[in-house]
Computed example of a mutant assay.
Amino acid sequence: MSQLPVEVTAMAEVPADKGEVHVVHLYPREMSIYGDLGNTRCIAARLRWHGYRPVVHDHHPGAPWPERADLVLGGGGQDSGQVRVQEDLAAQADRLRELAADGVPMLMICGMYQLMGQAFVTVEGERLPGLGIFDVTTQGGRTRMIGPVVLDTDLGQVVGYENHSGATRLGEGQAPFGRVRHGHGNNGSDGTEGARTGNVFGSYLHGPILPANPRLADGLLEIAARRATGEWAPGEIDDSIADQAHQRQVRRLLG
Rank of each mutant, 00 (worst) to 15 (best):
E87C: 01
A224F: 09
E7N: 00
P54L: 13
Q86W: 02
A44S: 15
H50C: 04
Q174R: 12
G132E: 09
L89Q: 01
A90S: 14
R97C: 12
D17C: 11
L253F: 00
A224V: 06
L107R: 12
T153G: 00
P214Y: 08
Q78C: 04
Q244M: 12
L155T: 01
G38P: 13
M106W: 07
G166H: 00
L89P: 01
L26N: 01
M145D: 08
R97D: 01
G75Y: 01
A245S: 14
V149T: 10
A224K: 05
E126K: 07
G255P: 12
R48N: 04
I133R: 04
V121Y: 03
G219W: 05
Q92G: 05
A212W: 10
V21E: 02
D238G: 14
C42T: 11
R41C: 09
Y204K: 06
E30M: 02
E236H: 15
F177S: 04
M108W: 01
A63M: 05
R53Y: 06
Q114S: 13
G219D: 00
G75W: 00
A217V: 11
G62V: 05
H164C: 10
A225H: 10
P105W: 05
Q244F: 12
A245Y: 12
P15F: 04
E193V: 01
G19H: 03
Y34I: 02
L128N: 00
V21K: 05
G130R: 06
D239E: 15
R248A: 15
L37E: 09
E20G: 03
L89W: 00
T122H: 03
G207W: 02
G173K: 14
N163W: 12
D70V: 09
Y27F: 15
E124Y: 00
V21F: 08
N39W: 02
A245K: 11
D243M: 11
R181S: 10
H57L: 01
S203F: 10
A101G: 11
L253C: 02
H60G: 00
E162P: 05
L115G: 10
N39G: 04
L73I: 11
G207V: 05
A10C: 14
G202Q: 08
D238R: 14
G235T: 09
L4K: 12
S240K: 03
H182V: 06
G77N: 08
A225K: 09
A90M: 12
P64A: 03
G198M: 03
A63T: 03
Q157D: 09
V14C: 09
G156E: 14
E98P: 04
G74A: 12
G171R: 09
L216F: 12
S240F: 07
H22N: 08
M112D: 02
K18P: 08
D58Y: 04
H59D: 03
V149N: 03
S2R: 14
V83P: 05
L37D: 05
E98I: 10
L221S: 07
P176A: 15
V250S: 04
G183Q: 02
T40H: 04
V23H: 00
P5E: 04
V149H: 09
H206V: 08
V85N: 03
R144C: 06
P15D: 11
V55F: 08
D135T: 11
E172T: 05
I33R: 05
N199H: 11
V55T: 15
D218R: 13
S240L: 07
L26E: 04
L170M: 10
Q174D: 10
N199F: 01
M112I: 07
D218T: 09
T9G: 07
T229S: 10
N39S: 06
M116I: 02
Q247T: 13
